[in-house]
């Protein structure tokens, strides 16, 4: 562990901070991508699940002092459980209603946290350092990479296919024997889990959390990352999260007019690049080419031309 510490010490703290921000953003945006990009259910309450994770995680550190890994897992599970409980009634609603309901739910969560003694009301919580020998940046990127791998696996599995079927056509999906309510709830729970874990990381990285930090604008923040990269695209989400988490640090304009840019971005992307800025680029093929292997699609075509 000492080695990890010394690596962290070598990196410029400013750069480190940006890297950690990107890592957290990836976890959060991937969570939303599961719900919205892969399953097609627009959630405007992602920040609320993030706040549930953040406060749970902070309170676990303060009151119980559990190891950080266990702490994050518990925070994620609690966010997921609340997500599933909320999802059960509202996921029966169609797209637009669902969006409004998640937004309304997020506002309720914020108001509740602002009125609870245990979360220190409007004053917010100061979060002590996490109980972990591994330095925070490694933790964040470890979780980010695990999330990326998990969502990649999920998307191309039987489970993920069911989610994509629901996104594309609910009636046809049902006629294929897919229990759409159950899958929607599971997808919502997975997304909320990742939001909760991201929230836990966020709380311990910033050392301070306030219910007002997790409002509608935070949800839009995460939504913009996903939209920039392309709905449903994992590589795109990583790209979008990286760009938008780093941009304010490099571009003065982005720091000042961030939400203005996001607003314009959402409209622009939907009208001109609905598949994301890099939509249509096959990342798997690019990686395979880069390491000197033939792209998967080419292989398949060859196989068929032979047969």
């Amino acid at each position: 562990m000492g080695a990890l510490q010394s690596i962290v010490a070598m990196v410029d703290p400013y750069v480190l901070q940006i890297l950690v921000n990107i890592g957290i953003a990836i976890v959060l945006a991937l969570g939303l991508n599961v719900i919205t990009g892969i399953t097609g259910q627009l959630s405007l309450g992602h920040a609320a699940f993030m706040s549930i994770g953040a406060f749970t995680s902070a309170l676990i550190t303060i009151k119980l002092g559990l190891p950080f890994g266990l702490n994050l897992l518990l925070s994620g599970i609690i966010a997921a459980a609340i997500g599933a409980a909320i999802g059960y009634p509202i996921l029966r609603l169609t797209g637009d209603y669902l969006a409004i309901c998640t937004l309304g739910f997020a506002e309720i969560v914020k108001v509740v946290f602002l009125n609870l003694d245990i979360t220190n009301r409007a004053l917010g919580l100061t979060v002590p350092p996490p109980k972990s020998p591994i330095p925070m940046p490694f933790y964040v990127w470890g979780v980010a990479i695990l999330s990326i791998v998990f969502v990649c696996f999920m998307k191309e599995s039987r489970f993920g296919r069911a989610l994509k079927a629901i996104r594309d056509d609910e009636i046809a999906a049902e006629a294929m024997g897919i229990n759409i309510t159950r899958y929607k709830i599971q997808s919502f729970a997975i997304g909320s889990f990742l939001a909760g874990v991201g929230g836990g990381l966020y709380a311990h990285f910033l050392n301070y959390i306030n219910p007002s930090d997790f409002g509608f604008l935070k949800s839009v923040d995460i939504l913009s990352m996903m939209v920039l990269g392309g709905l449903g695209s994992i590589a795109g989400t990583v790209f979008g999260a990286s760009v938008l988490a780093a941009a304010p640090e490099f571009l003065r304009f982005m720091a000042q007019y961030r939400m203005l840019v996001y607003g314009g971005l959402l409209v622009f992307m939907m009208v001109f690049r609905p598949n994301g800025l890099l939509g249509g680029v096959n990342f798997t093929d690019l990686v395979l080419r880069a390491i000197g292997r033939k792209p998967a699609t080419a292989e398949i075509n060859e196989r068929h031309n032979k047969g």
Binding site: L42, V220, M259, G263, G264, L266, V267, M269, M270
Partner: peptide
């Protein structure tokens, strides 16, 4: 500007565009 080009797209796209307009205007 924000809805007519999306009339044939999915409802998700139009909704996201609408949220974009909302954020843009309130920030402005």
């Amino acid at each position: 500007i924000a809805y007519r080009p999306l009339r044939k797209s999915s409802r998700l796209s139009a909704l996201i565009s609408a949220i974009g307009v909302s954020i843009f205007l309130s920030t402005l």
